[in-house]
Design a binder for these strands. Sequence first.
DNA 1: GCATGTGAATAGATTCACAGCG
DNA 2: CGCTGTGAATCTATTCACATGC
Lengths: 236, 236
Amino acid sequence: MASVRRIPQATVARLPLYLRALEEFAAERASTISSEALAARAGVNAAQVRKDLSYLGSYGTRGVGYDVAYLVHEINRQLGLGEARRVAIVGAGRLGQALGGYGGLPARGFRVVAAFDNDSEKVGAPLGSVQVSPVSQMAEVISGERVAIAIVTTPASAAQMVVDAATAAGVKSILNFAPTTVSVPAGVALRQVDLGIELQILSFYQEHEAASKISPSVAGGALPGTVPGAAASIAG
Amino acid sequence: MASVRRIPQATVARLPLYLRALEEFAAERASTISSEALAARAGVNAAQVRKDLSYLGSYGTRGVGYDVAYLVHEINRQLGLGEARRVAIVGAGRLGQALGGYGGLPARGFRVVAAFDNDSEKVGAPLGSVQVSPVSQMAEVISGERVAIAIVTTPASAAQMVVDAATAAGVKSILNFAPTTVSVPAGVALRQVDLGIELQILSFYQEHEAASKISPSVAGGALPGTVPGAAASIAG
DNA sequence: GCATGTGAATAGATTCACAGCG
DNA sequence: CGCTGTGAATCTATTCACATGC
């Protein structure tokens, strides 16, 4: 019953991993699962799983394990996945197109409700299930559609500008794929994902002995007038 | 002169960030840079920058700062970016196409030398500057082309299989975009990137107060028969 | 008896603060 | 005298180990 405890960033970053694993177990008709089995599937240590879950309030049964369905429910609740989050994609290039058409988004509770680009060739074209709007309309469309999260897939040169426009229009989370560091106002959460950086990190470990441990990425939020910093995740 | 010191994972994950910032400074004709300016551009704290760089052997000048060109050179060296790394893309769907055509790869010293898919519709089609080969030929093409890094952009169901095939053929680093946890043999470095997970993490911070700090992702390597775990970075 | 839940121990990362040097 | 380089202090995260309770 640690329900008031503050959940560590590292734990928050692992909850979605557990969720993914739990959904696999659920699909296999498992009704109960041990920390050990969950840990193996998620690629972490069993003690880690137990400690992480204990921050949520500990929903396991000693001698038995965790109820799969209930845990899924609780993690979903903690992550705020009750209702579909409304997202916008800014930048309708190849990457934006790929993400917009990615079926994993609706499957995980995210709904693309707008897309933007400043290339007039792209404006009006379909991107996933929406039409690309001009960047000049970001403010009105974002507030009209109540967009909560903006995914930035513009070139580096445009990234800070669109982040500024999106946050000014009320977006509270930014997922930046542009290969540059952007900063966001206080109270806006930010995560950055850069293919080149990932490859460079791998390159390091190729040169030197491969590292011994696996570590998750950590959250990149912002309460203070935070700058940027991090790197993180995407899907196929 | 801490040249023998082991470089912490967290530092390794930030070196590419510094590199990116330094290249921007170089483009602006700055010949020397303070830890403070570099920190601001990279979105971290100045003390962090100094400590991180001190692991490389400390190439700064007190009262002045760091020589931009020299630092770029040293970080590139540490990251093993002397010669272009040879990469393969496995999975020629939208995301694979987007990554294969991404100009940031060659710009940062990575060369796509092969692509694979098991859909016969896609085999033979161009992906970036190469042609898609059938998955059945992975072993020979990977060893023939001396592929060092495999980028996995298949559906989740195929991911572990292609990772096994790639590592068996000699690939030493895996960048997994498939939304599932994969495991790799000892000595193979692994990083995982999942769009859905990133969004779920942002969703958490949207619900609760936004986090106060920014944190970088951490490396996901493997010396032991390591399982998977992490999340991390890509670009637009 | 078996697997959770958790304090305590350990390890790792960040930040401070200042001595040292150009 | 400014800025690096780095020990020491702090904070965060991971792992251990075992008491607890089903």
